[in-house]
Amino acid sequence: MKIIVCIKQVPDAKDVRLDPKTNTLAREGVQSIMNPYDQHAVEEAVRLKELLGGEVTVLSMGPPQAEEVLRQAISCGADHAVLVSDRAFAGADTWATSYTLAKAVNVIGAFDLLLCGKQAIDGDTAQVGPGLAMRLQIPYVTCVQKVRQATDSGLVLERMMDDGYDVLALDYPALLTMVKDINEPRVPSLKGKMRAKKLEIRKLTAADIGADPACIGLPGSPTQVVKVFPPEARCQRAVFTGSLDEQIGQLVDSLQPYL
């Protein structure tokens, strides 16, 4: 089994908040972490490797410091790490990102499974996984909540839907995106951490993957951000007075339109 897992370095959501004075994201103390959904994808890849044999390659597109999340994946059981990094990738939307990752996957070589997190918590778009599969012309399943059965030729999966779940069967190669229910990511092992420290990370630039400059970064992105602004503040905020019973009465008054 050859498994490739795409991972992304993101700001830790619990640190991200708006500075009320400047209405921009407060940057102090914001840690960079591996996108939480991607941690589940790495874990599932390592479990499949433990079950079926083979190797796991983790792939990330990002700035040089994204090496950290690749090393974290190695410490949790992945075997190889590839970083696609180039200033020319800056401003990439999901279309340009899936193009870049597809090019990088082609450089890495043959695979049976490509795994991604359901979405990254900084953008929440959930578009790169499906986009990558389309570019590689392989089938994909999003929001996988359970691998019911895994063999050398294919998988039986549960895909989360809004009203329940679908049970799906597919053969390799395929791309899956993972929700957090699928597993509990392991804590890195001591041996894994030592390996991660020493491991040489393969680095690829835009030229290395043979990317068309018109398809990467800002020029390759059909969508462009024209404005960033804080959400409207909520302002109603009523204060009730009196005994608890009286306060509840006032609440019921306020909720009249919904009763």
Binding site: W95, T125, A126, G131, M134, D162, P222
Partner: peptide, 23 residues
């Protein structure tokens, strides 16, 4: 932006080379 819309629409957008904004 449902489980179904968020799943197959990104694939469609990629094939079409179209810009897609989620949610």
């Amino acid at each position: 932006a449902t489980a179904i819309g968020r799943s197959f629409i990104p694939g469609v957008a990629t094939t079409l080379g179209a810009g897609l904004t989620a949610d």
